[in-house]
């Protein structure tokens, strides 16, 4: 496959998942798109042989570091980045409003928000991107064992909370 075709295939396959992933980290549409564009621009210049075989892990890892890189650059200027503000101001994230919605549709995202960041990230990579433990370990730069621990602890804590909630209802 030609270089250009190869890039386009990967863009086609990973554009949406990466955008969704980047958005989960930035909560800003334009910042997420910036990070994903940067990721693919880096892919254009990357040594193909080094990427092939684990494209998803490579892309997610680069994308993640783009996001944190961009956030670090912004941080000294705005302690509360515009991205975060947008989320706080978004109608769907009004805590009072969120509190009276009990359907499962909003319950899971709300409970997820309460998990530690690393657990949240690992869970998202597993259940939204369907990456293996090994690939998640590559993206998060940790061991497979640690990924197993993060995911299990996160799932268990969600299960505990849901149990408490349903107990309170019935």
């Amino acid at each position: 496959m030609e270089h250009r075709e190869w890039i386009e295939t990967l863009v086609g396959r990973h554009e949406k998942p990466l955008c969704r992933y980047a958005y989960s980290l930035t909560r800003s549409v334009s910042a997420a798109q910036d990070a994903v564009q940067e990721t693919f621009l880096r892919l254009c210049k990357a040594d193909r042989a080094k990427v092939e075989g684990h494209e998803a892990a490579w892309l997610f890892r680069v994308c993640r570091s783009r996001v944190f890189d961009m956030q670090r650059k912004e941080k000294p200027m705005n302690p509360l980045t515009p991205a975060r503000e947008a989320v706080l101001a978004a109608p769907g994230h009004n805590p009072a409003e969120a509190a009276d919605r009990h359907d499962t549709e909003t319950l899971v995202p709300r409970l997820m928000d309460g998990l530690p960041e690393r657990q949240r990230e690992a869970i998202r990579l597993k259940f939204q991107q369907n990456l293996s433990y090994r690939d998640i370990a590559r993206v998060l730069d940790t061991s497979e064992g640690n990924v197993g621990f993060l995911i299990h602890t996160g799932i268990k804590s969600l299960r505990d909370q849901m149990k408490t909630l349903s107990g309170a209802v019935s």
Binding site: H3, E15, A22, A32, V36, P109, F127
Partner: peptide
């Protein structure tokens, strides 16, 4: 539940301008 909830999140794509930028670089 998690898989369903996460799969239901709205999807985001690149806008045409950014995508064209990548296409240009891919050349």
């Amino acid at each position: 539940l998690l898989a369903t909830s996460l799969a239901a999140e709205p999807e985001l794509t690149l806008d045409p301008a950014r995508r064209a930028g990548i296409a240009a670089a891919a050349e």
